[in-house]
Design a protein around this nucleic acid. Structure first.
Lengths: 210, 210, 210, 210
DNA sequence: GATGAATGAGCCTTCATTCAT
DNA sequence: TATGAATGAAGGCTCATTCAT
């Protein structure tokens, strides 16, 4: 999984350690606020207050409110990536790996549902330019599954045509996202375990015939 | 497909015909604006101007900016419903009907992609109360596919367990939505026809074994 | 009691009977609204609705919202005058007449408290020009008591110097007004009868020594 | 004279000294504007401009336009209190004290006539809740005279029955207010000195027989 | 005469951002 | 580095008044 370049956000402060620390505070505060009130209804004052410092200080570490949104999206993606990497088991067939990856992915999506939803709903508020960085991350996650599918294709454990790989990877990712943004209905009818079990077996049925 | 009740938006104007006409103008203007700039960045003045009348007149037909968003969401859903209904063929098996419905649904989603996206991204800006009306519509669409699946189950043309019906309906709807909100990637790799063909065959493979 | 000239308010309508009728409707509706919400917070729409006709019709009988306020003030003053005139007894001494007049005046003020207050609080919203007409009415009421005092002075029943007459008249009128605009405190401690009794005896004590 | 609690108006600014200073500027500017144009016809922009800062800054020190009105009323009352306190002479009989108090009170009312009028005419524009604070001040002033009357009653210098005390205190206060809100007529006929002399002697005549 | 839809100036308030300390 | 007071453009909404029907 190749890492996408980050967007560099200028800061008035020199010390990189401090920048990192402060931005962590900002993100932690902002995530909660964005989730509960949305990006537009959250004020910079609220962000600075919840971050534990003044509005002036906030602007020492960012250049605009939208930077905070970028920082937040980026941090969320980082978390997702961490969760995905933990799931990877080596020395097994692509099929086995896929099953584990889907299960792990759905577990991560379940834990991060509010954050996933946040990205989906607020991404459009990013400047066109910045949005690309975030979309790239999204693509990265898709390619995570693409790679597993490829591996299974090569080792013969998965029965899938080349042109189908990309789409199937999308399907899997959407499976996870749908658990977050259709939760109002899905939760009423299925537990995470049930959901995982059914969706996994549908996918594997398609790809292995079993 | 049972119709959900609409939220009644009070108007200062008495003539219902006129209300309908003006609200159509409002919706037409607002959809474009919301799609291109987003709900929050669109001003009420812009809406009124694009609708062809003054800000005062706009407020004769709505009570708040959020009402416009509701009107827009409602109109979009109505269009979707119309599209879906046209697709229904009678006197055929559930399986055949499902295939046609998916194709038709994807066609509709493709035509309305911007609008579908709009609903997904701005729905959270609706007052909690109003949001329910819009979510109900969303559920309605899902149940459209649920009913087809049920019919196929009964006539034996579809092989699906009862508890799976709801989830499969969701899967199908998400299939359509994903064509709109992952278009940045899907379009690069698949045409609508390819997408339809692959997804339909995956679904039918799951449900008919063929 | 010489009548002050009224301000003439132009109307689009020719029939004077109709004008009078409509304006009565307007006043009746507006008084209630002004009392409960104040002049500024009452809209012309509300006035027309409460009057029983459309906003367009309202403006056939007035030229501005302030005209309504004038109409209202004028009607209230007319009522007060009517009340005062009823109180006048002839063929008695000035002292007896004064006692009766004060009692009657206080009764009228008690009955019309909300309206009296209304004039006091909203009079400043009248155009400078129009305000004069209303102030003149106020002066008229004062001179009502002035005349009684004069009569008592002449017939020897009241012991009062000429230059004191005007001030005493004012004092009496203010006595009545104070029952309306200090009611939040006076009502807690005195009934109208007690209030009347005390104030009357204070006045008469000053003017007759008894 | 027991002090009534003030209504606390939240401010975005932390420094209490600065808050006080800025609010003084606001009050100074707003009093003039309210007197000349009335509360409703004065805009917040005018207030901020006349205060010497921007509209944004104005709202750092208040939460709503009505807060300004409260601030203004409160400041006026404070001035009145200061004026009243200066008038108090100790070590004298209640009767002597009363005479001095009335004279002082009328002098204060004369100096502050526009402001007194302002309170009377705009108090109703305050939120019900806030109005109570202002009314309490009004009561406070009445009780200032009540106390003097009580003292005179106790030391035998004033001849007044207990139940009459409250009403007489009201009468005195109204005497002062009437000098402001009937000035259009009183000024034409009496100077402040004449007015004071006559009213004082009427009161004292009632209370001492002299 | 009556109606009521249309108008738009103008109001109060918010909030991202700056900059002197 | 940190602070927080100051700024003012901009936004949502109201309402007195007009005028075509």
């Amino acid at each position: 999984m190749r890492m996408e370049p980050k967007k560099a956000i200028p800061s008035m402060v020199k010390d990189p350690k401090l920048i990192e620390k402060r931005r962590e505070q900002i993100v932690e505060a902002a995530v909660e606020l964005f989730i509960s009130k949305g990006f537009h209804k959250t004020t910079t004052r609220e962000i600075s207050r919840a971050s534990g410092f003044s509005i002036g200080t906030l602007y020492e570490y960012i250049e605009s409110k939208e930077d905070v949104l970028y920082l937040v999206c980026d941090a969320i993606h980082q978390n997702m990536e961490r969760g995905l990497k933990e799931v990877l088991v080596n020395g097994v067939s692509g099929a086995v790996m896929l099953k584990a990856a889907i299960e792990g992915f759905l577990r991560v999506m379940d834990e991060m549902q509010d954050r996933v939803l946040l990205i989906y709903q607020e991404i459009k508020s990013l400047p066109k330019d910045t949005m690309k960085y975030v979309m790239a991350k999204e693509e990265e996650i898709t390619s995570f599954f693409e790679e597993i599918l490829h591996r299974g294709r090569k080792d013969g454990s998965l029965n899938i045509d080349e042109p189908l790989v990309k789409l199937m990877a999308h399907n899997i990712v959407v499976l996870g996202e749908m658990w977050t943004f259709r939760r109002w209905s899905l939760r009423k009818n299925y537990t995470l375990e049930q959901y995982t079990e059914i969706q996994t077996s549908l996918i594997l049925h398609d790809l292995t015939g079993k």
